[in-house]
């Protein structure tokens, strides 16, 4: 009785959203909103982008109602583990370090890491030696931030980490950074738009081809199976290609 009262009390405080433990009819998906063209906010404060379109297509295939919420990147895995939402569709690269915390679906696209530099940059290639003594920016808590720190940083570069990719891009354009490392398509998209006057793509970083997957909690096996099936389905029936063509002129699957 006491426990029930306490629980009820907590609920009344407005913290609740009770949900059953089985496969849900409704799932909450998180994305970031500062990683164009994969996810970004429009002026009506709505999430847009490749990730969002894919998430909606997957939900339609699975026939579940989805709510997509924005979550800052630094806290996105802790928030998933804390059950603030059920899945992350935010261009998250599948890594061993993350796999210790969360479960990943199969990939929904692949990308190498690339380096963008100012147009007049003396940096010749993406090797560690070329970046020695330079300032390299990346978004924190990402595979590229680990690369910037552990590979370029150990080779004598100064790694600066930003809460969002947008801010790292802004600082590359401002001239505070000598180079920015990020997923190739993100840099390509930025160089097509606001980055086109200042900067250029230097090239891919060898051996960094990686896969983006949907992150879920380890215990949600059913959700993982459903999502994997849905990914296969949208690739097979052409929905995936339709979405991809909206954003890219090449195949990213």
């Amino acid at each position: 009785m006491y426990k029930t009262l306490l629980a009820a009390g907590i609920c009344i405080l407005g913290m609740t959203s009770l949900a059953s433990a089985q496969m849900k009819k409704e799932i909450v998906i998180a994305s970031e909103g500062a990683y164009p063209p994969f996810n970004f906010m429009d002026s009506n404060n709505k999430l847009q982008g490749f990730d969002i379109d894919i998430a909606n297509a997957l939900c339609e295939k699975m026939q579940v109602k989805c709510t997509i919420v924005a979550q800052d990147w630094d806290g996105i895995i802790p928030a998933l583990l804390a059950k603030k939402f059920d899945a992350i569709v935010a261009s998250m690269t599948i890594t061993d370090e993350r796999k210790q915390q969360v479960e990943f679906t199969d990939r929904y696209y692949r990308t190498p890491l690339s380096l963008a530099v100012p147009k007049d940059s003396p940096i010749k290639d993406t090797s560690v030696a070329s970046l020695k003594g330079k300032t390299v920016g990346a978004q924190s808590s990402t595979t590229q931030s680990i690369y910037a720190e552990d590979t370029y940083g150990k080779g004598g570069a100064d790694a600066k980490l930003y809460p969002t990719q947008d801010e790292a891009n802004a600082d590359l354009a401002n001239g505070r950074l000598d180079a920015a490392v990020a997923d190739k398509f993100v840099l390509v998209e930025w160089l097509k738009n606001s980055g086109k006057d200042c900067c250029k793509l230097l090239g891919d970083i060898e051996g960094t081809m990686s896969e983006a997957g949907i992150a879920i909690r380890k215990e949600d096996k059913e959700l993982k199976a459903a999502l994997n099936k849905a990914i296969k389905d949208i690739v097979a029936d052409g929905t995936y290609k339709k979405i991809q063509d909206k954003y890219f002129a090449f195949d990213i699957y």
């Binding site: 426990k3 609920c11 913290m15 609740t16 959203s17 009770l18 928030a79 804390a82 059950k83």
Partner: peptide
């Protein structure tokens, strides 16, 4: 972050399956 983890543990300790946000 911590509050969420704390509540989750409290609820689990009391034997509730519910999710509190």
């Amino acid at each position: 972050y911590g509050g969420q983890i704390l509540i989750q543990r409290l609820m689990a300790a009391m034997g509730f399956e519910a999710q509190i946000q």
